[in-house]
Structures are given as structure tokens and as C-alpha cells.
Design a protein around this nucleic acid. Sequence first.
DNA 1: CTGAAAGCGCTTACAG
DNA 2: CTGAAAGCGCTTACAG
Lengths: 338, 338
Amino acid sequence: MVTRKDVAARAGVSPSTVSYVISGNRPISTETRDRVQRVMRELKYTPNAIAQSLAGSRKGIVALHFPVDHRGLNTTEFEYLTAVTQRARECGYHALLWSDPVADIDSLQTMVASQMVDGLILLEVFTDDPRIPMLTASGAPFSLIGRPADPDGLTWVDDDFDSLAAQATDHVADLGHRHLLYLAPPFDDLERGHGAAVRTQFALESAAAQRGLSLTQFHAARTTRGGLDAFAHVVSRSPRPTAVLAFNELAVSGLLRAASAASVSIPRDLTVVALSHADVAAEMMTPPLTTVSPSATELAVRAMDALADLITGRARPAPQAFVQPRLTIRESSGPAPD
Amino acid sequence: MVTRKDVAARAGVSPSTVSYVISGNRPISTETRDRVQRVMRELKYTPNAIAQSLAGSRKGIVALHFPVDHRGLNTTEFEYLTAVTQRARECGYHALLWSDPVADIDSLQTMVASQMVDGLILLEVFTDDPRIPMLTASGAPFSLIGRPADPDGLTWVDDDFDSLAAQATDHVADLGHRHLLYLAPPFDDLERGHGAAVRTQFALESAAAQRGLSLTQFHAARTTRGGLDAFAHVVSRSPRPTAVLAFNELAVSGLLRAASAASVSIPRDLTVVALSHADVAAEMMTPPLTTVSPSATELAVRAMDALADLITGRARPAPQAFVQPRLTIRESSGPAPD
DNA sequence: CTGAAAGCGCTTACAG
DNA sequence: CTGAAAGCGCTTACAG
């Protein structure tokens, strides 16, 4: 391997001068700089990242941590991952993927203590998330996509759930629907305090109440089967809901299939609006789903930029931001039947 | 931060003894070892991973590299990523996510030259993949999921495309289908030499010919729209294909939608078999898709284990392996009409 | 504007 | 069985 010493010898300067040419941390004569740069190119010299990390303070790596006990990631979560990875790179960081059961914070703690990363982004934040006190105690910079019950002093970006609920209920109310079903994530998620699940539910209840709409809920398994069950529930209720608001990507697909099998036409007989659902997943469905979703890219950019500010020590106080979801009307929503 | 020196001082031993207790690289008296371990726990000491990397040879990081110029990752590719990430961890490595345009190998080269990773796994390999000669020249250990035109001397795992094609054509032939349509990836992918696209196409052509089946092709855009176009093509052909074999995740969804809109029932009027399609994506469709797919986990495990062997210097000659796809009959395939 | 040197926190031969 | 020391390849004060 070519080292800084090799470059220095060939360029006739001291090793430290090579370092300063690279970092630009002190004035170098044009002549010296040009010569060193030429030699670096000739020798195809690339600084050793590990040595830079140890001597300097910057590691150039951020970890993305998502919990995975209950299920795999869905398309929406995957979008977040890729968006954060891309933004990390634009900010000059490599992205390390990391996932454990939420409750199992030991390996995360070890990784942080081993000082391998400059900072972390946590996804799928729970209202009482054990990762947060641990990271706070460690002193490592981190930012959240989502937020716990008490987000004071933390750096986070999150959906504006009130706006999300308002847009979804307004959309179906405007179409004349009065009886709504909330196709919710498994009850388990609520009990464990999954932030988005809890906040979406509360926001919907309050938005429906304000508009005088009836809203019942069905907690479906995060599987296609869960959606079949949800459909059975829809047709058994009286009065029968005419619109389903869904926050459960896999169950929605089951609901669509069950509706198709029962010759219940969407949207003629039943309106479906998917919440926080990736565009690409919505467009793969038959019919394509009307969604109310935040932009994964916007969440990722804000979370990563906030983390970068935290790492470099810009940014007190901690940046906190709500991202506004957007309604995209596709073909799964229509006027309430008669 | 607590360092090795702190532990040594408190345990009354030399710093090197602490290192040897951790690595187990030389005999230590039980008494000393116990004392050192107790102090490490008391001080919550975690070795600095960066310093270990610089002094030792192991970095504990592998990079996963997938090209991304033409499109985002689909669910199937995402499955590979998560499977490899998980296996990497089981093998004691962190996974660094990395992606550029295929042709743009500079940043990949810089990362490798900076010696940040122990090795790499390349996904979405092209028949003439510029990443491969570059990495070979660099001397960095790497393994491939997929393979180039000339895979000699490389470490790779790949689908057995002949088996895949045989299973798919046998399945539809057994159901009485004689006229097949291959819903292929964009022609562009073939031209650029996307390994799986090229091999799937050749294998299907040969399998269909052997069985005396007619096979026409339609290269669809990797979008829902591409599938709508493909459906229009199906119904315009004479004789009309009764079975579609598809290697294009997004286009399949468009095809299903177009069929539904035209009241063409699947599988009664048209059979659809998806190739190399993630189970979870297949089960989200209406109807759930019959698939012929390799196990992403098996590919990931083999690729990662091979890489680990390469890194540690076990494993000459280079491991190379075909993974057998499996037919999963769901609801999108049925007997040929009349 | 540039060089000689300490230090980052480890691993591991060298020495006993 | 254990310690003192060189070395990994850098960054950056210290000195001129």
C-alpha cells in the first residue's frame, strides 16, 4: 500500500506537509501543493480511512438503526432506509445498517462504545424507547425519525399526524362518507408504544370526532391474512363502513384481494385510503391507492442534516421538525355509495 | 473514555495483558484473567474498534454494493440486502451500504483503497461489470451475487437459470399452455448486460424451444405503466398468449391491473408466473402470484459465508455455487383456456 | 511557509 | 505466565 510517507519521499517534502495538502488546514505554497498533488495522483495514493479516524476525530460513518423483532421492513420503511443512505452519502458519511430487537440494546451500546460511528439515526421510534436513554447517556450524537412520548431536548423529525388525520378524514368526508373503519396495525404495536401507530390512532379518533364521523377500528395482523380478516369485519358491521383508512401495508393488500373475491368494487362500493404508505407500493395495487403520506426523502434529509449539524457541533438547540404529509388521490377513493 | 490503560492500571497488570485477555491470543493465568475481566465490567470498558482495526488487520466491516442508475431497488433486491446484512452480522461483520451508478466506479475504488472494509459483496452483477476488474486489481476480497460473462476465478453465487426456466415452462406446459409471453425487463437492461436479465431470457428461449412452446417477448418499462403496455400487447397478438412469464416486478402489477380493468380473469383467462420475485411481493398481489424464485436468504448466506472464508484466507479455490429456484404455486396460474 | 515529533488506542513480536 | 516496546498511518500542536 502507498502511504503518506511514500508520497512525501517522492515529492521531497515531509509527511506532515502531505497531510496539510490534503486537509487544507494550513497555508501551503502553490508550488509545493501542486507537486504533492501530482505525486499523489501518480502513486494513486488514497489516505487510510482507519488511520484518519484514529488520529482525527471524524470517522465518516453513521449508523442507521431500526428495530426488527415483530416483522420485516415494509416498502415504506425501506424507502426511508435508502433515502437516509443516500443523504448520508451526500453529507460525506457512509451508512452502516444495524438492526436488532428494540429491547435488545446491548449490541447497539457496544457499537456506540466502540466509537466506530460519528452518530446514529434511529428509525421506528417507540413512545418509550430504550435506545434513547442509552444513547443520551453515551453522549453519542443521534437523531430520530419519529419521536418518543417525551421528545424534549432530542433531535427528531416526525410526521405531522394531526395534519395526516385531517387530510385523510377531510378527503373521505368530502366524498360523503360518514362511517369509517380504521384498519390499524396489530394491537401489539400500540401496546408496545410504536410511536407512529399510537399517534396515528389518536389523531384519527380526534379528527373523526371533530367532523362528526363514526370511526371504528380493526387491528389486523401485519400480513395479507390480516387484511382478509379486516374485510370480513367491514362487511359484518352495521352500519357498514364505506371508507377504510389503513395504516398497515400488508393488510391493505389482503383487503383488496378479499374485496375482489367478494365482488365489492373499490372505490364504487368501498373507499380505501392508505396512510404513510410508499408511493411505489400504492401504485402496485389494483386499484392504485389514494394515500396520505409524508415524503420519505424529506424525513431522511431533515434527519440526516440535523445529525450532521449535531456531529459537527453546529446546531444548538436541537433541531426538531414536523413534516407535512401530502394527499395523493389515486383510484381507490370515490363518492360514498347512495 | 475508558481505555485499555485504565483497565490495566486498575487491575494491576500491563496494558498488553488486557489485550491478551480480550483476544485470547496467549495463555493467561485464571486469576489474572478473572481480575481483568471483572475490572473491564466495572469500568464498562469497550475496546476502540478503530484502534483495533489500525493495529490489527480486521476491520469488521463489509460493504454491500448495488448499482442504482436505472431505478430504485425492488422488493426482491431489498430482500437480498436485508438477508446479507443479517448474515454479515452473524459472521461478525457490520454491513456498510453503498450504491452508485454501475459505470461510476471511482467512489467504490476510493472506498476500497481507503481500506475501510475487509471485503465486499456486489449485487446486480452485469455480464461485463466494470467493478470486477477494478476490485480484482485492488486485491480486496469480494464475492458476487450473480456473475459476469466470464466468472473464472471469481467467488460467486447465482441462480440456476436453466432450472428456473425449466420449472416455469414445465409448470405452464403441464397446465396445457402452448403460447407464452415473456414479460421481460427493459431492453436497455439486456443491452447493458444485466446478468440475470440476459440469462433468464436465454434460458427461457431454450426451455420453450425444447418443449415446442411458442415464446414471444415484450420488454416492458420497469413501471406499472410498462405492465399496462404489456397487457395491450398480449391481447393484440394472434395467437394470443395464454400464459405470461414475468421478470419485472413493477410491470407485473400493471399487467394485473390492466387485466382486471379488461375483465380478463387471472388465472381463468390468463396465467401469470413471476420469476425471481420476492414472496412477500407475490402475496400482496391480487391474485397472489405463482413464482419461481431462489431463496434470497440462501443466496445471501452463501455469498457472505464465501466472503468470510476469503477474508480469513480459508477457501482456496474460490467458492462458486448455483442456487436452485423453487416453484411456489399460488393463485395466478391455472389450466389453459379451452 | 515547512519540518520533527507527540499522540490516537490498539496488536503483537521480542524478551524474560 | 507477563511486561516493555515497536508499529499501524494518520492529525495536529510545537518549533522555527
